[in-house]
């Protein structure tokens, strides 16, 4: 579609997108304890990118995303599926959650877990799906 010829929208989009992406990461990572999670975070990021599509155009957005949304969708599904496998290696049922507390210098104790990997997979799937749809539609318009 034709980019909306609005300076305000462009400026807003340019500033809002990094903020929204950062916010989406925040929502994703804290989602296990506070409201949030992969679905919501993915939707927030997708809304940010969509805004960018409206302000500029599909091609610019695609460059900005550094990955084809369909590829991102595939990675997300793969990641989510793989997160169920470590449990099998340990002789437990598929998708049994596993937790590894890791000491990271400067930050302190961080807990890595398969549910977190799974949630990141969900995050990528949601962004990839929504953006695949929005970009495809917008590109037809252009």
């Amino acid at each position: 579609m034709k980019a909306m010829d609005s300076l305000i929208l462009r400026t807003a989009a340019r500033f809002l997108l990094p903020l929204l992406l950062l916010f989406s990461l925040f929502v994703l990572l804290r989602g296990h304890d506070e409201p949030g999670g992969g679905f919501i975070a993915g939707l927030v990021a997708a809304v940010g990118f969509s805004l960018y599509v409206f302000a500029f155009n599909a091609g610019d957005t695609r460059e900005l995303m550094w990955m084809d949304p369909r590829v991102m969708l595939g990675w997300g599904l793969l990641l989510a599926t793989l997160s169920g496998l470590p449990a099998i290696l340990e002789g437990k049922a598929f998708f049994t959650a596993l937790w590894w507390p890791v000491e990271v210098p400067l930050i302190g104790s961080v807990t890595l877990s398969t549910p977190l990997v799974f949630d990141i997979g969900v995050y990528l799937v949601v962004i990839g799906s929504v953006m695949a749809i929005v970009l495809a539609l917008a590109e037809v318009e252009e």
Partner: peptide, 17 residues
């Protein structure tokens, strides 16, 4: 319901197109 909302969007996009 949370997943239903998101899936609802996916299905809606499909139906609309």
């Amino acid at each position: 319901v949370l997943t239903a909302i998101v899936i609802g969007f996916g299905v809606l996009a499909f139906a609309v197109v």
